[in-house]
Design a protein around this nucleic acid. Structure first.
Lengths: 189, 189
DNA sequence: ATTATATCCTAACACAGTTAGGTAATCAAT
DNA sequence: ATTGATTACCTAACTGTGTTAGGATATAAT
């Protein structure tokens, strides 16, 4: 039988496609193996089990999200950058809802790798908000603030909490504008 | 054999205890049946399957959370009420992390019941924020804002995103204070 | 060419959710 | 109190999922 020489990367990449197509709840090693034209047990050559696959997928999603956010913030400053991030962050979650969901599936304490991928996203926010003040404690606080807004909003939206008549897009835009206003008035002096 | 006459309520209540004790990831019908001194298949007399159990647990968690929040807001107004809610909301999530996690496990569109339980929590926020303006669109927007902050913060905290040196409690307190300030300055005129 | 390594396989197991069909405890009606 | 209907619970079996053990063979190294 011809061997195709799979790698961990290829397996995770295919798993990511499968997750996005069929939902992270429907990811099974059997379906994944099928798509890779191997048998289920053969996956264990590349991964230690489904738990590691979850971690790898979460890590991939965080890297993709980090890249999208990092790309959005380029050359931009303060309010403009913050608005760009909110759009990029939400777009990633909208276009890859299942992968975004994956990020929260595994506690980050379970993996050094995950903690680092999380730090990457956080570092972008930290650097941006450092433009407002030199007080690092305040920057951390506002980073958490902004991160909470973005993640909370997207998460509640995807869970189906925002069923009211008024526009969800407009809401987020208003919220981010308010947040920026708050930043300006409380830090720029 | 003596029959104990279980009910859906008792089953869900026991499942909630099991979830909180062993983690929502480790909930199985077998373990649940064991605790109720019946066989796994007998659970199907009371629930249609594990999917319904998830919905019922999510619904219970939302009701518990709603009760905690509703209780916190009593007799209080504006800023004081908002601060009280943030404490109550976070306390619920801290003391019942697994049940809080349950809320997000099932898309709310899957169940009328869940949508209503969600509306209950939202209604409390809506009523409170109505104290700031008569503009209902703005109230909805700020409700989403506040809800996003609370859920996002708690969710990120539990996932392990907040590993920095500075205090998590203090962060949330500052964030909520900032939010209140923003409310005052943008709506009270 | 021979050896070694690593990829993939078959076969089997444990355990989870689910269904079908049966038994017996409970309840309602006479 | 006896009957009949209901229903709580059971046993047994099936499917699907994750996992391990051990074997075969393609690839790489010598």
């Amino acid at each position: 039988m011809p061997r195709q020489g799979l790698s961990k990367e290829v397996v995770v990449k295919e798993a990511a496609l499968l997750v996005e197509e069929t939902g992270c709840k429907n990811l099974t090693l059997h379906k994944l193996a099928d798509r890779l034209n191997i048998k289920t047990a053969s996956l264990y050559t590349h991964i230690s089990g489904i738990e590691e696959l979850y971690v790898l997928l979460s890590n991939l999603a965080l890297k993709q999200l980090g890249a999208a956010v990092s790309n959005a913030v380029k050359e931009k400053k303060r309010g403009e950058a913050i608005r760009a991030i909110s759009v990029a962050y939400r777009n990633y979650a909208k276009r890859n809802p299942e992968m975004y969901h994956m990020i929260m599936k595994v506690p980050h304490s379970h993996s050094e790798q995950l903690v680092n991928a999380g730090k990457n996203v956080k570092a972008i926010l930290f650097e941006l908000l450092s433009q407002y003040t030199a007080d690092q404690a305040k920057v951390i606080c506002f980073s958490r603030y902004y991160h909470s807004i973005l993640h909370g909003f997207i998460s509640l939206e995807q869970a189906g909490f925002f069923d009211d008549a008024i526009s969800v897009d407009e809401s987020l835009s208003n919220i981010v504008d308010n947040f920026i206003e708050q930043l300006e008035s409380s830090l720029s002096n």
